[in-house]
Write a protein that binds this DNA or RNA. Structure first.
Lengths: 208, 208
DNA sequence: CTTGTTTATTACCATACATCAATTTTTTAG
DNA sequence: CTAAAAAATTGATGTATGGTAATAAACAAG
């Protein structure tokens, strides 16, 4: 099934190809040449394949990942063996187990690739260094986290107040580009319903 | 019922009583005397009463609130008239509609007082000014938001993966000091179940 | 203390979604 | 293109939680 990041299909750094740059990562930040150079060094661009696992439960979380292309997800497997998807990440999103990343605790989650992807990774230490050397970046991330926070808030509300059908509709409306990339069972595990229920929800909606 | 903040029971600033200080708000921050003075000015300490409403849906969100004592909550009322509680805040917590606060959009939520409380409020403009004048405070809030974020993440997971009973047990274990302050229907609206179901859950647990 | 009001409990029935199992459709690999 | 595997659908049935209503308990005001 899923193959582990360290053991397979790590195609390697292609940063010298300059397909993507740090400026793609920090859109809107006005770097000086010096700052740009500092930021460049903090990143490593990598290719990953569908099924690759970037993070497993029980590990510390040294990196966060920025997605240039493709689709990744964070998910959790309960004691009963069921999968629950916390987050998907497509182009321009960041992903990792942020709770563990921030607190230096061990992760509860898997992060894996739903499709082949081009991503870059940055370590926590590099991040903190960057905050000091390029103060704009601390603000940049603050704003990112604020938005992220907002999306979590909306989700909590949606989970509390909505039926399976409503949650499904909200998802496809909010994230049409994600739906294209994922299997039904991925989406079901995000919505907190079974694949069977998702199938029935779609069937009902199609009739309308 | 609930009385509006602007219209009633605003006991007024008692900052000259020096019961609480900005140092209580920013625990761990080492202020210079000058910085302390700057920070002091950004705050207004106020007494609020059970039922007072600090924020209503459709309003812009000029303030965030820090709780010195008492209990507040953020909640949402759906089209069907049901209440869903997003968050409670007791001593040392911050509360507002952060999504709207950050994005300068109108709130979807009410914030009201579950009990009489002593709080202080700070405006978004003051915040941003403070970030500039006391850089430690931007870091302070980043860490706060990181923790907040983590609690939201855990909640999303709990909502996805847990039964009513499990969610209840998680809540009382995580927030024993909150449970003391709130009515059953407050807790039910946070867990996303009915008061009847909460009552049954407790009944079942008592038998064990 | 008494009375009215708010909050919590209990019982009975309804429903959304889960579970299990069989089948069809789509995707993948040779 | 074909065969095997993975994913999605459909049907029959089970279960947790919701809805309604009646009652009881807790709280608040005079």
């Amino acid at each position: 099934m899923a193959t582990f990041f360290n053991s397979v299909s790590l195609v390697g750094s292609i940063s010298d190809m300059k397909k993507y740059t740090v400026q793609d990562v920090f859109k809107g930040v006005n770097f000086s040449l010096l700052e740009l150079e500092i930021a460049e060094k903090a990143f490593e661009e990598i290719l990953v394949k569908k099924g690759d696992v970037l993070l497993t439960p029980g590990q510390f979380v040294p990196y966060q990942y920025f997605v240039f292309s493709g689709c990744l997800r964070t998910y959790f497997i309960s004691e009963t063996g069921k999968e629950y998807t916390l987050q998907f990440a497509i182009k321009d999103w960041w992903i990792t187990d942020y709770t563990a990343f921030f607190t230096n605790e061990k992760s509860m989650f898997y992060v894996d690739c739903v499709t082949d992807a081009v991503i870059c990774k940055i370590s926590k230490e590099s991040m903190e260094q960057l905050y000091k050397e390029v103060p704009q970046i601390e603000s940049f991330f603050r704003v990112k986290m604020e938005r992220f926070f907002g999306s979590y808030q909306k989700r909590i509300l949606s989970d509390l107040a909505s039926s399976a059908e409503e949650k499904y509709l909200r998802f496809v409306k909010s994230y049409p580009d994600i739906e294209k990339n994922i299997k039904n069972y991925h989406l079901a595990s995000y919505l907190g319903i079974t694949t069977e229920s998702l199938s029935r929800v779609r069937h009902e909606l199609a009739k309308k």
